[in-house]
Amino acid sequence: MLLASDATSPVFSWNLPADFQDMWSYLYMVNAFRAGLVVSVVCALVGWFMVLRRQTFAGHTLSVAAFPGAALATLAGFSLSLGYFGFCVAAALVIAALGRKGRDAGAEESAVTGTVQAFALACGFLFISLYKGLLEGPTALLFGDFLGITTGQVLLLAAVGMLVLAALAVIGRPLFFASVDPEVAAGRGVPVRLLSTLFLVLLGAATAEASQITGTLLVFALMVIPAATAQRLTARPAVSLALSVLLALGSCWAGLIAAYYQPYPLGFFVTGFAFAGYVLAHLLGWAREVVDRSRSAVQIGGTA
């Protein structure tokens, strides 16, 4: 973020090969692109199932849990990745143990969730303020930072990402069945409850990965928006899964490029690009509906 305010700030020319050569001459940018690749693929796939299962609220809670995890890791001096993954997966297990209450539950449960989320964020703030050395304060953790990604972190992200994808590949088909029609799936002997717990753990791992790129508050940019855009554009599962990966990767890499040349935070660009795609998809959908309606109206008018 501080990069562009330097005297030798890079300037974007439309000569793309030269731009990429310039960017990739820095190891941290190469690492950022690698991490972006891993995170967007994992998040888009897991996020696609999350949107399908309408568990965005659980995703929100998990992403909130990432903040105290990272802050505690900074304070206690253990690995940041451990803090992210540990807290997110633990939070996923807690949510799974409490059962699927979510948003449909009564007023009391929503008060509990609101209190728990605020308390988790307050704990994160406590850890941050106890740790005096962090100059930028909590904003880097909350809104994302890509300057400090090391090769070791990328390898860890890739390893966890492979695990998540492998697990998702194994449970993908029954999970899809259980998400679309839980009663029939349970009737056919699909272990719906076990699948739901497994999926929440995968969701926790994916949230922890995304938090390290976009920051804990902006996880939705890579998890929800691409999947929602893809599901709006096409109804076929395989196509929309692929589309969701492409959209996430596109907005993540475009965000990285923009953040390299502009002094504004990465999270802003990633959310901005992803949201622009979402709005475009909705406009396209409406336009298609209007065209279809007028065409059918013309046909009806023609036959009459």
Binding site: G267, T271, A274, Y278
Partner: peptide, 11 residues
């Protein structure tokens, strides 16, 4: 989606 974008704008 909308609130992720609004927070990004805040950042």
């Amino acid at each position: 989606s909308v609130f992720a974008w609004i927070l990004g704008l805040g950042a």
